[in-house]
Design a protein around this nucleic acid. Structure first.
Length: 442
RNA sequence: GUGGAUGUAGCUCAGCUGGUAGAGCCCCGGAUUGUGACUCCGGUGGUCGCAGGUUCAAAACCUGUCAUCCACCCCA
Protein backbone atom coordinates (compact mmCIF):
# COMPACT_ATOMS: atom_id res chain seq x y z
CA UNK A 1 0.00 0.00 0.00
CA UNK A 2 1.55 3.26 -1.12
CA UNK A 3 1.91 6.10 1.31
CA UNK A 4 -0.47 8.34 -0.57
CA UNK A 5 -3.48 6.14 0.06
CA UNK A 6 -2.90 6.18 3.80
CA UNK A 7 -4.24 8.91 6.04
CA UNK A 8 -1.52 11.27 7.33
CA UNK A 9 0.56 10.19 10.29
CA UNK A 10 -1.38 10.06 13.51
CA UNK A 11 -4.79 10.38 11.84
CA UNK A 12 -7.34 7.67 11.11
CA UNK A 13 -10.30 6.78 8.97
CA UNK A 14 -13.33 5.35 10.72
CA UNK A 15 -15.55 2.66 9.29
CA UNK A 16 -19.33 2.82 9.62
CA UNK A 17 -19.35 0.20 12.41
CA UNK A 18 -16.65 2.09 14.31
CA UNK A 19 -18.70 5.24 13.98
CA UNK A 20 -21.64 3.59 15.71
CA UNK A 21 -19.54 3.24 18.87
CA UNK A 22 -17.87 6.62 18.53
CA UNK A 23 -21.16 8.39 18.05
CA UNK A 24 -22.66 6.54 21.00
CA UNK A 25 -19.84 7.59 23.33
CA UNK A 26 -19.83 11.21 22.21
CA UNK A 27 -23.60 11.39 22.39
CA UNK A 28 -23.56 9.97 25.93
CA UNK A 29 -21.07 12.62 27.02
CA UNK A 30 -23.01 15.36 25.29
CA UNK A 31 -26.26 14.31 26.94
CA UNK A 32 -24.63 14.51 30.36
CA UNK A 33 -23.26 17.98 29.65
CA UNK A 34 -26.75 19.12 28.72
CA UNK A 35 -28.24 17.45 31.79
CA UNK A 36 -25.83 19.47 33.90
CA UNK A 37 -26.93 22.70 32.31
CA UNK A 38 -23.99 23.39 30.06
CA UNK A 39 -24.65 25.15 26.76
CA UNK A 40 -22.90 24.36 23.55
CA UNK A 41 -20.64 26.81 21.78
CA UNK A 42 -18.42 26.51 18.75
CA UNK A 43 -15.27 28.32 17.76
CA UNK A 44 -12.75 27.98 14.93
CA UNK A 45 -10.48 24.97 14.64
CA UNK A 46 -7.63 27.40 13.98
CA UNK A 47 -6.70 30.58 15.81
CA UNK A 48 -3.82 33.00 15.65
CA UNK A 49 -0.76 31.11 16.76
CA UNK A 50 0.22 33.84 19.16
CA UNK A 51 -3.13 33.47 20.90
CA UNK A 52 -2.91 29.71 21.23
CA UNK A 53 0.61 29.73 22.54
CA UNK A 54 0.03 32.20 25.37
CA UNK A 55 0.93 30.53 28.60
CA UNK A 56 0.42 26.99 27.39
CA UNK A 57 4.01 26.07 28.18
CA UNK A 58 6.96 25.48 25.92
CA UNK A 59 6.42 21.77 25.49
CA UNK A 60 2.90 22.22 24.26
CA UNK A 61 3.93 25.05 22.00
CA UNK A 62 6.13 22.65 20.09
CA UNK A 63 3.12 20.46 19.51
CA UNK A 64 0.96 23.09 17.88
CA UNK A 65 0.33 22.59 14.19
CA UNK A 66 1.16 25.92 12.59
CA UNK A 67 0.73 27.32 9.12
CA UNK A 68 0.62 30.61 7.33
CA UNK A 69 -2.40 31.67 5.35
CA UNK A 70 -2.14 33.42 2.00
CA UNK A 71 -1.97 36.83 3.68
CA UNK A 72 0.98 35.59 5.72
CA UNK A 73 -0.92 35.36 9.01
CA UNK A 74 0.58 32.83 11.38
CA UNK A 75 -2.13 30.46 12.49
CA UNK A 76 -2.29 27.30 14.54
CA UNK A 77 -4.71 24.44 15.01
CA UNK A 78 -6.25 24.27 18.47
CA UNK A 79 -4.49 21.65 20.61
CA UNK A 80 -7.22 21.71 23.25
CA UNK A 81 -10.29 23.80 24.02
CA UNK A 82 -9.18 25.91 26.93
CA UNK A 83 -7.05 28.54 25.18
CA UNK A 84 -9.68 29.07 22.47
CA UNK A 85 -12.24 29.38 25.25
CA UNK A 86 -10.20 32.13 26.86
CA UNK A 87 -10.18 34.03 23.58
CA UNK A 88 -13.86 33.29 22.97
CA UNK A 89 -14.82 34.55 26.39
CA UNK A 90 -12.80 37.72 26.06
CA UNK A 91 -14.38 38.39 22.66
CA UNK A 92 -17.98 37.67 23.63
CA UNK A 93 -18.15 38.31 27.37
CA UNK A 94 -20.65 41.17 27.07
CA UNK A 95 -23.13 38.82 25.45
CA UNK A 96 -22.65 35.90 27.82
CA UNK A 97 -24.58 35.13 30.96
CA UNK A 98 -22.40 34.46 33.98
CA UNK A 99 -21.37 32.13 35.35
CA UNK A 100 -20.79 30.98 31.84
CA UNK A 101 -21.14 27.21 31.61
CA UNK A 102 -20.30 25.89 28.21
CA UNK A 103 -19.38 22.65 26.55
CA UNK A 104 -17.60 21.84 23.31
CA UNK A 105 -16.96 18.54 21.61
CA UNK A 106 -14.68 18.44 18.63
CA UNK A 107 -11.38 17.66 17.03
CA UNK A 108 -8.11 18.98 18.36
CA UNK A 109 -4.61 18.58 16.95
CA UNK A 110 -1.21 17.92 18.39
CA UNK A 111 2.03 17.50 16.50
CA UNK A 112 3.57 14.65 18.44
CA UNK A 113 4.51 11.06 17.86
CA UNK A 114 1.51 8.75 17.89
CA UNK A 115 1.50 6.08 20.57
CA UNK A 116 -0.91 4.20 22.77
CA UNK A 117 -3.90 6.45 23.32
CA UNK A 118 -2.19 9.25 21.47
CA UNK A 119 -3.07 10.64 18.09
CA UNK A 120 -2.34 13.76 16.08
CA UNK A 121 -5.99 14.40 15.46
CA UNK A 122 -8.40 13.45 18.21
CA UNK A 123 -11.64 14.37 19.90
CA UNK A 124 -11.99 16.07 23.21
CA UNK A 125 -15.16 16.85 25.09
CA UNK A 126 -14.87 19.84 27.38
CA UNK A 127 -17.06 21.38 30.02
CA UNK A 128 -15.99 24.63 31.65
CA UNK A 129 -17.38 27.22 34.00
CA UNK A 130 -16.16 30.81 33.85
CA UNK A 131 -17.16 33.45 36.34
CA UNK A 132 -16.84 31.88 39.76
CA UNK A 133 -14.08 31.36 42.29
CA UNK A 134 -16.18 28.98 44.36
CA UNK A 135 -15.12 25.40 44.90
CA UNK A 136 -18.71 24.54 44.09
CA UNK A 137 -17.50 24.70 40.52
CA UNK A 138 -14.93 21.98 41.11
CA UNK A 139 -17.51 19.89 42.91
CA UNK A 140 -19.99 20.26 40.09
CA UNK A 141 -17.42 19.35 37.45
CA UNK A 142 -16.22 16.30 39.36
CA UNK A 143 -19.81 15.27 39.93
CA UNK A 144 -20.43 15.66 36.21
CA UNK A 145 -17.42 13.46 35.48
CA UNK A 146 -18.74 10.72 37.72
CA UNK A 147 -22.13 11.01 36.05
CA UNK A 148 -20.60 10.72 32.59
CA UNK A 149 -18.58 7.68 33.60
CA UNK A 150 -21.62 5.99 35.10
CA UNK A 151 -23.46 6.61 31.85
CA UNK A 152 -20.56 5.00 30.00
CA UNK A 153 -20.62 2.10 32.50
CA UNK A 154 -17.08 2.74 33.71
CA UNK A 155 -16.40 1.57 37.23
CA UNK A 156 -12.72 0.81 37.73
CA UNK A 157 -11.36 4.32 37.61
CA UNK A 158 -9.91 6.66 40.20
CA UNK A 159 -10.04 10.39 40.62
CA UNK A 160 -7.05 12.18 42.06
CA UNK A 161 -6.80 15.82 42.94
CA UNK A 162 -4.14 18.31 43.91
CA UNK A 163 -3.67 22.05 43.91
CA UNK A 164 -1.08 24.16 42.14
CA UNK A 165 -0.91 26.60 45.02
CA UNK A 166 -0.16 23.79 47.44
CA UNK A 167 2.46 22.36 45.13
CA UNK A 168 4.13 25.74 44.88
CA UNK A 169 4.09 26.08 48.65
CA UNK A 170 5.71 22.72 49.28
CA UNK A 171 8.31 23.36 46.59
CA UNK A 172 9.15 26.60 48.35
CA UNK A 173 9.18 24.96 51.75
CA UNK A 174 11.50 22.25 50.43
CA UNK A 175 13.98 24.92 49.45
CA UNK A 176 13.59 24.59 45.70
CA UNK A 177 13.97 27.93 43.96
CA UNK A 178 11.43 29.44 41.62
CA UNK A 179 13.68 28.91 38.59
CA UNK A 180 13.88 25.17 39.25
CA UNK A 181 10.24 24.76 40.18
CA UNK A 182 9.00 23.52 36.81
CA UNK A 183 11.75 20.96 36.42
CA UNK A 184 11.12 19.72 39.96
CA UNK A 185 7.39 19.43 39.36
CA UNK A 186 7.92 17.59 36.12
CA UNK A 187 10.15 15.07 37.83
CA UNK A 188 7.84 14.63 40.81
CA UNK A 189 4.90 14.00 38.49
CA UNK A 190 6.72 10.93 37.21
CA UNK A 191 7.21 9.31 40.60
CA UNK A 192 4.84 6.44 39.95
CA UNK A 193 6.55 5.74 36.65
CA UNK A 194 10.25 6.10 37.37
CA UNK A 195 10.36 5.64 41.13
CA UNK A 196 12.20 7.56 43.81
CA UNK A 197 15.64 6.92 42.35
CA UNK A 198 14.47 8.14 38.98
CA UNK A 199 13.10 11.36 40.43
CA UNK A 200 16.28 12.03 42.37
CA UNK A 201 18.28 11.45 39.22
CA UNK A 202 16.17 13.96 37.34
CA UNK A 203 16.46 16.42 40.19
CA UNK A 204 20.23 16.18 40.01
CA UNK A 205 20.23 16.56 36.25
CA UNK A 206 18.40 19.82 36.78
CA UNK A 207 20.72 21.00 39.52
CA UNK A 208 18.40 20.23 42.42
CA UNK A 209 19.76 18.44 45.49
CA UNK A 210 18.60 15.10 46.75
CA UNK A 211 18.02 16.77 50.09
CA UNK A 212 15.39 19.02 48.47
CA UNK A 213 13.65 15.93 47.23
CA UNK A 214 13.77 14.32 50.67
CA UNK A 215 12.45 17.50 52.17
CA UNK A 216 9.56 17.64 49.71
CA UNK A 217 8.69 14.03 50.44
CA UNK A 218 8.78 14.65 54.19
CA UNK A 219 6.16 17.35 53.81
CA UNK A 220 3.78 15.08 52.00
CA UNK A 221 4.39 12.02 54.14
CA UNK A 222 1.06 12.40 55.87
CA UNK A 223 0.32 8.83 56.74
CA UNK A 224 -3.41 8.77 57.22
CA UNK A 225 -6.15 7.68 54.88
CA UNK A 226 -8.29 10.65 55.78
CA UNK A 227 -7.48 13.43 53.35
CA UNK A 228 -9.12 16.11 55.49
CA UNK A 229 -6.84 15.19 58.36
CA UNK A 230 -3.84 14.92 56.06
CA UNK A 231 -4.41 18.33 54.60
CA UNK A 232 -4.79 19.86 58.03
CA UNK A 233 -1.43 18.39 59.02
CA UNK A 234 0.13 19.64 55.80
CA UNK A 235 -1.29 23.07 56.42
CA UNK A 236 0.49 23.37 59.74
CA UNK A 237 3.78 22.03 58.43
CA UNK A 238 3.89 24.34 55.46
CA UNK A 239 2.73 27.28 57.47
CA UNK A 240 5.74 26.89 59.74
CA UNK A 241 8.22 26.22 56.98
CA UNK A 242 7.39 28.88 54.41
CA UNK A 243 8.99 32.19 55.22
CA UNK A 244 7.65 34.29 52.35
CA UNK A 245 4.31 35.63 53.46
CA UNK A 246 2.61 35.76 50.09
CA UNK A 247 3.63 32.19 49.28
CA UNK A 248 2.46 31.12 52.72
CA UNK A 249 -0.93 32.74 52.19
CA UNK A 250 -1.29 31.26 48.74
CA UNK A 251 -0.48 27.83 50.04
CA UNK A 252 -2.95 28.14 52.86
CA UNK A 253 -5.54 29.26 50.34
CA UNK A 254 -4.83 26.21 48.20
CA UNK A 255 -5.15 23.88 51.13
CA UNK A 256 -8.41 25.54 52.13
CA UNK A 257 -9.67 24.96 48.60
CA UNK A 258 -8.86 21.29 48.76
CA UNK A 259 -10.34 21.01 52.24
CA UNK A 260 -13.53 22.60 51.00
CA UNK A 261 -13.70 20.05 48.19
CA UNK A 262 -13.07 17.07 50.46
CA UNK A 263 -15.43 18.29 53.15
CA UNK A 264 -18.29 18.53 50.67
CA UNK A 265 -17.45 15.64 48.38
CA UNK A 266 -19.21 13.03 50.48
CA UNK A 267 -22.53 14.83 50.29
CA UNK A 268 -22.61 14.50 46.52
CA UNK A 269 -21.29 10.98 46.18
CA UNK A 270 -17.65 11.85 45.62
CA UNK A 271 -16.23 10.39 48.80
CA UNK A 272 -13.79 8.21 46.84
CA UNK A 273 -11.72 11.00 45.32
CA UNK A 274 -8.18 11.14 46.63
CA UNK A 275 -5.59 13.75 47.36
CA UNK A 276 -2.47 13.06 45.35
CA UNK A 277 0.32 15.41 46.44
CA UNK A 278 2.39 14.34 43.43
CA UNK A 279 -0.17 15.13 40.76
CA UNK A 280 1.13 18.00 38.65
CA UNK A 281 -0.32 18.29 35.13
CA UNK A 282 1.74 20.04 32.54
CA UNK A 283 -0.35 22.81 31.12
CA UNK A 284 0.96 26.17 32.17
CA UNK A 285 -2.28 27.96 32.84
CA UNK A 286 -3.51 26.05 35.89
CA UNK A 287 -3.67 28.09 39.07
CA UNK A 288 -5.63 26.12 41.65
CA UNK A 289 -7.13 22.66 42.03
CA UNK A 290 -6.14 20.18 39.34
CA UNK A 291 -7.54 16.72 38.84
CA UNK A 292 -7.16 13.65 36.76
CA UNK A 293 -9.25 10.56 36.14
CA UNK A 294 -7.55 7.35 35.15
CA UNK A 295 -8.27 3.73 34.61
CA UNK A 296 -7.07 1.55 37.47
CA UNK A 297 -5.75 -1.40 35.53
CA UNK A 298 -5.16 -0.30 31.97
CA UNK A 299 -2.00 1.36 30.81
CA UNK A 300 -3.76 3.95 28.74
CA UNK A 301 -3.16 6.80 31.19
CA UNK A 302 -5.63 9.45 32.18
CA UNK A 303 -8.75 9.76 30.08
CA UNK A 304 -10.16 12.87 31.66
CA UNK A 305 -8.50 15.76 33.42
CA UNK A 306 -8.89 19.38 34.26
CA UNK A 307 -8.46 22.11 36.78
CA UNK A 308 -8.76 25.75 37.65
CA UNK A 309 -7.20 28.44 35.49
CA UNK A 310 -8.21 31.73 37.03
CA UNK A 311 -5.73 33.82 35.04
CA UNK A 312 -6.71 32.65 31.60
CA UNK A 313 -9.33 35.17 30.49
CA UNK A 314 -7.15 37.99 31.74
CA UNK A 315 -4.49 36.80 29.33
CA UNK A 316 -6.87 37.59 26.52
CA UNK A 317 -7.71 41.02 27.78
CA UNK A 318 -10.84 40.35 29.83
CA UNK A 319 -11.24 41.29 33.48
CA UNK A 320 -10.05 38.47 35.76
CA UNK A 321 -12.62 35.77 36.33
CA UNK A 322 -12.59 32.49 38.16
CA UNK A 323 -12.53 29.63 35.68
CA UNK A 324 -12.33 25.88 35.83
CA UNK A 325 -12.88 23.07 33.37
CA UNK A 326 -12.71 19.40 32.65
CA UNK A 327 -11.75 17.64 29.48
CA UNK A 328 -12.65 14.11 28.45
CA UNK A 329 -10.34 12.24 26.09
CA UNK A 330 -12.88 10.71 23.76
CA UNK A 331 -10.32 8.53 21.95
CA UNK A 332 -8.96 7.13 25.16
CA UNK A 333 -12.42 6.38 26.45
CA UNK A 334 -13.18 4.52 23.23
CA UNK A 335 -9.83 2.71 23.36
CA UNK A 336 -10.60 1.60 26.90
CA UNK A 337 -14.04 0.34 25.91
CA UNK A 338 -12.51 -1.67 23.09
CA UNK A 339 -9.69 -3.04 25.24
CA UNK A 340 -12.17 -4.20 27.83
CA UNK A 341 -14.56 -5.84 25.48
CA UNK A 342 -13.25 -7.09 22.19
CA UNK A 343 -16.82 -7.50 21.04
CA UNK A 344 -17.64 -3.88 21.79
CA UNK A 345 -18.00 -3.16 18.10
CA UNK A 346 -19.78 -6.36 17.13
CA UNK A 347 -22.41 -6.15 19.83
CA UNK A 348 -23.67 -2.74 18.78
CA UNK A 349 -26.62 -2.56 16.46
CA UNK A 350 -27.30 0.00 13.81
CA UNK A 351 -29.41 3.05 14.57
CA UNK A 352 -31.35 1.93 11.52
CA UNK A 353 -34.19 -0.18 12.87
CA UNK A 354 -35.63 -1.77 9.77
CA UNK A 355 -34.53 -2.78 6.30
CA UNK A 356 -37.38 -2.98 3.80
CA UNK A 357 -37.21 -5.23 0.76
CA UNK A 358 -39.90 -5.39 -1.89
CA UNK A 359 -39.84 -8.17 -4.41
CA UNK A 360 -41.13 -6.56 -7.57
CA UNK A 361 -42.37 -3.33 -9.09
CA UNK A 362 -45.92 -4.19 -7.99
CA UNK A 363 -44.97 -3.79 -4.35
CA UNK A 364 -42.97 -0.61 -4.73
CA UNK A 365 -45.72 1.81 -3.73
CA UNK A 366 -46.74 -0.25 -0.72
CA UNK A 367 -43.14 -0.48 0.46
CA UNK A 368 -42.51 3.19 -0.16
CA UNK A 369 -45.59 4.19 1.82
CA UNK A 370 -44.64 1.93 4.71
CA UNK A 371 -41.14 3.40 4.79
CA UNK A 372 -42.54 6.91 4.71
CA UNK A 373 -44.97 6.24 7.54
CA UNK A 374 -42.22 4.80 9.71
CA UNK A 375 -39.88 7.68 8.97
CA UNK A 376 -42.58 10.23 9.75
CA UNK A 377 -42.82 8.54 13.14
CA UNK A 378 -39.14 8.96 13.73
CA UNK A 379 -38.18 5.39 13.00
CA UNK A 380 -35.04 4.98 10.94
CA UNK A 381 -35.64 2.80 7.90
CA UNK A 382 -33.55 1.75 4.95
CA UNK A 383 -35.39 0.89 1.79
CA UNK A 384 -33.67 -1.59 -0.51
CA UNK A 385 -32.59 -0.21 -3.84
CA UNK A 386 -32.50 -3.63 -5.53
CA UNK A 387 -34.84 -3.97 -8.46
CA UNK A 388 -35.28 -7.73 -8.35
CA UNK A 389 -33.75 -8.69 -5.07
CA UNK A 390 -32.34 -12.00 -3.97
CA UNK A 391 -33.81 -12.44 -0.50
CA UNK A 392 -30.81 -14.35 0.84
CA UNK A 393 -28.52 -11.54 -0.09
CA UNK A 394 -30.83 -8.91 1.27
CA UNK A 395 -30.97 -10.59 4.66
CA UNK A 396 -27.24 -11.01 4.66
CA UNK A 397 -26.86 -7.34 3.81
CA UNK A 398 -29.08 -6.26 6.69
CA UNK A 399 -27.22 -8.56 9.05
CA UNK A 400 -23.87 -7.16 8.01
CA UNK A 401 -25.10 -3.65 8.53
CA UNK A 402 -26.33 -4.68 11.99
CA UNK A 403 -29.91 -3.76 11.20
CA UNK A 404 -32.06 -5.84 13.54
CA UNK A 405 -35.20 -6.26 11.44
CA UNK A 406 -36.00 -6.91 7.81
CA UNK A 407 -39.40 -6.31 6.27
CA UNK A 408 -40.23 -8.40 3.23
CA UNK A 409 -42.98 -7.20 0.96
CA UNK A 410 -44.24 -9.43 -1.82
CA UNK A 411 -47.53 -10.21 -3.48
CA UNK A 412 -48.89 -11.92 -0.39
CA UNK A 413 -48.13 -8.96 1.89
CA UNK A 414 -49.67 -6.39 -0.41
CA UNK A 415 -52.83 -8.50 -0.73
CA UNK A 416 -53.21 -8.67 3.03
CA UNK A 417 -51.95 -5.09 3.55
CA UNK A 418 -49.36 -6.44 5.99
CA UNK A 419 -45.59 -6.77 6.20
CA UNK A 420 -43.50 -9.82 6.94
CA UNK A 421 -41.07 -8.76 9.66
CA UNK A 422 -38.06 -10.90 10.33
CA UNK A 423 -35.88 -10.59 13.41
CA UNK A 424 -32.37 -11.21 12.13
CA UNK A 425 -30.99 -12.60 15.37
CA UNK A 426 -33.82 -14.92 16.38
CA UNK A 427 -34.88 -15.63 12.77
CA UNK A 428 -38.50 -15.29 13.83
CA UNK A 429 -41.02 -13.98 11.36
CA UNK A 430 -44.34 -12.28 11.79
CA UNK A 431 -46.92 -10.97 9.42
CA UNK A 432 -48.19 -7.72 10.89
CA UNK A 433 -49.99 -4.55 9.92
CA UNK A 434 -48.24 -1.22 9.58
CA UNK A 435 -50.12 0.16 12.60
CA UNK A 436 -48.81 -2.65 14.79
CA UNK A 437 -45.32 -2.20 13.37
CA UNK A 438 -45.35 1.48 14.27
CA UNK A 439 -46.38 0.65 17.80
CA UNK A 440 -43.76 -2.04 18.04
CA UNK A 441 -40.94 0.34 17.19
CA UNK A 442 -42.22 3.15 19.40
C1' G B 1 12.80 15.71 18.30
C1' U B 2 15.27 10.64 20.20
C1' G B 3 15.51 5.19 20.53
C1' G B 4 13.58 -0.05 19.46
C1' A B 5 10.45 -3.43 16.60
C1' U B 6 7.61 -4.09 12.21
C1' G B 7 5.66 -3.18 6.83
C1' U B 8 3.93 -9.74 1.96
C1' A B 9 -3.95 -10.27 -0.85
C1' G B 10 -9.49 -6.30 2.04
C1' C B 11 -7.98 -8.82 7.28
C1' U B 12 -4.54 -12.25 10.26
C1' C B 13 -0.13 -14.16 8.86
C1' A B 14 3.56 -18.15 6.41
C1' G B 15 7.48 -17.78 2.93
C1' C B 16 14.59 -21.58 5.68
C1' U B 17 21.20 -20.08 3.96
C1' G B 18 18.77 -14.94 -2.44
C1' G B 19 16.07 -18.70 -7.84
C1' U B 20 10.37 -13.01 -9.54
C1' A B 21 4.68 -15.69 -3.98
C1' G B 22 1.14 -19.10 -0.32
C1' A B 23 -2.72 -20.38 3.69
C1' G B 24 -6.96 -19.17 6.55
C1' C B 25 -10.74 -15.62 6.92
C1' C B 26 -13.33 -12.02 3.81
C1' C B 27 -15.36 -11.06 -1.03
C1' C B 28 -17.86 -12.88 -5.74
C1' G B 29 -20.54 -17.01 -8.31
C1' G B 30 -22.99 -21.82 -7.90
C1' A B 31 -25.53 -26.21 -5.12
C1' U B 32 -30.47 -23.04 -3.16
C1' U B 33 -34.66 -17.55 -8.33
C1' G B 34 -39.86 -15.74 -1.00
C1' U B 35 -35.37 -16.33 3.50
C1' G B 36 -28.70 -15.20 5.72
C1' A B 37 -24.90 -17.39 10.14
C1' C B 38 -23.21 -24.54 9.05
C1' U B 39 -21.55 -27.59 4.64
C1' C B 40 -19.71 -28.47 -0.40
C1' C B 41 -17.79 -26.76 -5.29
C1' G B 42 -15.67 -22.91 -8.29
C1' G B 43 -13.56 -17.92 -8.83
C1' U B 44 -11.47 -12.69 -8.26
C1' G B 45 -7.60 -10.50 -5.85
C1' G B 46 -0.23 -8.99 -4.69
C1' U B 47 5.04 -4.00 -9.36
C1' C B 48 6.07 -8.32 -1.40
C1' G B 49 5.30 0.06 1.79
C1' C B 50 8.22 3.33 -1.66
C1' A B 51 13.08 4.68 -4.05
C1' G B 52 17.86 3.42 -4.99
C1' G B 53 22.05 -0.21 -4.55
C1' U B 54 24.60 -5.29 -4.51
C1' U B 55 23.69 -9.71 -7.80
C1' C B 56 23.15 -13.61 -13.69
C1' A B 57 18.89 -13.48 -10.22
C1' A B 58 16.03 -9.71 -4.39
C1' A B 59 9.94 -10.35 -0.73
C1' A B 60 14.69 -11.96 1.42
C1' C B 61 21.06 -8.62 1.67
C1' C B 62 22.63 -2.98 2.04
C1' U B 63 21.19 2.38 2.12
C1' G B 64 17.59 5.98 2.22
C1' U B 65 12.56 7.25 2.80
C1' C B 66 7.38 6.88 4.34
C1' A B 67 4.01 4.55 7.62
C1' U B 68 2.52 1.53 11.87
C1' C B 69 3.36 -0.25 16.89
C1' C B 70 6.19 0.41 21.49
C1' A B 71 9.19 3.58 24.71
C1' C B 72 11.23 8.66 25.94
C1' C B 73 9.60 13.92 26.01
C1' C B 74 4.87 15.61 26.87
C1' C B 75 -0.19 14.61 27.20
C1' A B 76 -6.70 13.35 26.39
Amino acid sequence: MGELVQPPKGTRDFLPEEMILRRKVMEAIRECFVLYGFVEIDSPVFEYFELLSRKCGEEIEKEIYTFKDKADRKLGLRFEFTSPLGRYYATNREKLTKPFKRYAIGKVYRYENPQTGRYREFYQADADIIGSYSMNVELELLNLAVFVLAKLEFDDYEIVINNRKVLDGIINAAGIGESKKDAALRALDKTAKIGEAGVIKEFKENGINEENYRSFMRFIDLGGLDDVKNLSILKERVNEAVKDESVRNKTAEGIEELLSIFENAGAIGLDFIKYDPLLVRGLGYYTGPIFEIKSKDLSIGSFAAGGRYDNLVELYGARPEGACGISFGVERIIDIIMQRDENALKSLSSPVKLYIVYLSENERLFAYNAARALRLNGISVELSVSVSPNISKEIKYADKKKIEYVAIIGEKEVDEKKLTIKNIKTREEKLISLEKLLKFFK
